[in-house]
């Protein structure tokens, strides 16, 4: 019985890590996969989602709706950034990355100036349940479920909808897609907005569990980066398996040595993985 409880605790640890990696990374992975841009302001979109969610909750909106509002707010912010900046740098992905860092700096510091160094947080909802001697917050299951739902949603969008198929065509052969009448600009614009929206969703979902500070996005960045590097350019074939593998490493290391060593483990795993699979897992799975 005792080992059973312990095993369940390990599974929960894994589920936590998996959910965090998927939610932190999927927005970044979509933008990277489709546009070749690593959005260094990704953390700020997460922060935006979290802040809007918390503000909405304080205004009396129920949490699920507040999270949706947060995600939409981030998506809108993403659209604005794409329209004002990213759009002018297509074909210069490295410059776009540097630019997003500038945006990150501006947003973090502006938030600090206007909203102060932290925001009153909201508690974790839905109570807890116990398995044997260990007690777990129900919200952890909500996060895990959300991660699975996001993956399923992305699978559906990119395989079954017209937008998704057009987007994949654009990603694979941009000039062909443009020649065959697809409006690649609009696809990029939507892609960036979806990426930002997913970041906002992550922020909203984790808002009840974290202290809200303007630099909170940074605490998602390492995990998001690592998952995207290991996963490669494809969200479904890359991010999901990468998150699963990395979650085992992270959960194991966290269980053994604590949170930070979970992160260090991830980083070392990444550096070793790219030595073996330079194009990430999705590059390996779709190799010719």
């Amino acid at each position: 019985m005792e080992t059973g409880y312990l095993a369940f605790a390990m599974v929960m640890q894994f589920a936590d890590a998996f959910a965090f990696l998927v939610l932190a990374a999927c927005g970044l992975a979509i933008v990277f996969g489709m546009m070749g841009i690593v959005n260094l302001a990704h953390g700020e979109f997460i922060m935006c989602g979290a802040y809007v969610t918390v503000a909405a909750v304080h205004a009396g909106v129920p949490l699920p709706l507040a999270i949706a509002i947060g995600a939409i707010a981030s998506a809108l912010a993403g659209m604005v950034v794409e329209f004002a900046c990213i759009r002018h740098l297509y074909g210069r992905p490295l410059d776009s990355i540097v630019l997003t860092w500038g945006i990150s700096l501006v947003v973090t510091q502006t938030t600090l100036i206007t909203l102060g160094s932290n925001m009153p947080s909201i508690g974790t909802p839905y109570g807890s349940f116990a398995v044997g001697p260990y007690s777990y917050s129900v919200y952890r299951l909500v996060l895990f479920g959300s991660a699975l739902a996001v993956l399923a949603g992305l699978y559906i969008v990119f395989n079954w909808t017209r937008f998704g198929i057009a987007a994949r065509a654009t990603m694979q052969v941009p000039h062909m897609a443009a020649a065959s009448g697809l409006d690649t600009r609009r696809i990029y614009s939507w892609t960036f907005a979806i990426g930002a929206g997913l970041a906002g969703l992550a922020g909203g979902l984790y808002a009840p569990t974290m202290t809200l500070v303007p630099t909170m996005g940074t605490s998602f960045m390492t995990e998001a980066f690592v998952t995207v590097v290991v996963g490669g350019a494809d969200v479904i074939l890359g991010t999901a398996p990468a998150a699963a593998i990395l979650a085992i490493i992270k959960a194991g290391m966290t269980y053994w040595k604590g949170q930070l060593f979970g992160q260090i483990g991830l980083l070392i795993a990444v550096i070793v993985v790219i030595r073996i699979l330079p194009k990430g897992i999705s590059g390996f799975l779709t190799r010719q």
């Binding site: 990277f32 070749g36 690593v38 260094l40 992905p93 490295l94 990355i97 940074t218 960045m221 390492t222 980066f225 690592v226 995207v228 590097v229 992160q263 260090i264 980083l267 990444v270 550096i271 070793v272 790219i274 030595r275 330079p278």
Partner: peptide
């Protein structure tokens, strides 16, 4: 590890930044 894996520009940026943050 980075150059001998022939990591391209973007990934190199992310890995080096991750190292700093960690």
């Amino acid at each position: 590890f980075l150059f001998f894996s022939r990591i391209n520009g973007v990934f190199l940026g992310i890995v080096t930044l991750s190292v700093t943050l960690v």
